[in-house]
């Protein structure tokens, strides 16, 4: 039930007074309500749950107890991002 999938916002528009958008999940594009993410813009990533964006993913977030293994995950992430 609490399943949420990260996707990239590709389009923003308004419907019935709500902020809506198209979100791309690796090729599958779905409509989502983004009313709870006032700052989200095209190109940002969100987690979508039952058709609603619930968070704007933070690229820079590094957890407080970053471990060596995790640091390497983060550096892989950085490399991917630069491409």
């Amino acid at each position: 039930m609490c399943l949420g999938i990260p996707g990239k916002v590709t389009e923003l528009y308004e419907a019935n007074g709500m902020k809506m958008g198209k979100v791309d999940f690796g090729g599958v594009v779905k409509e989502a309500c983004l009313e709870y993410l006032p700052e989200i813009e095209v190109g940002d990533y969100t987690i979508v749950h039952v058709g609603f964006g619930i968070s704007q993913l933070d690229e820079e977030a590094i957890t407080p107890s970053s471990t060596s293994a995790l640091a390497s995950a983060n550096s892989t992430k950085r490399k991917r991002m630069r491409r």
Partner: peptide
């Protein structure tokens, strides 16, 4: 896919398991 692949990485998982 971004935000998924890097969190399913076997090497990273193994590293964390070793640390535990």
């Amino acid at each position: 896919m971004k935000y998924i692949d890097e969190y399913r990485d076997e090497k990273v998982t193994r590293g964390l398991l070793d640390e535990i």
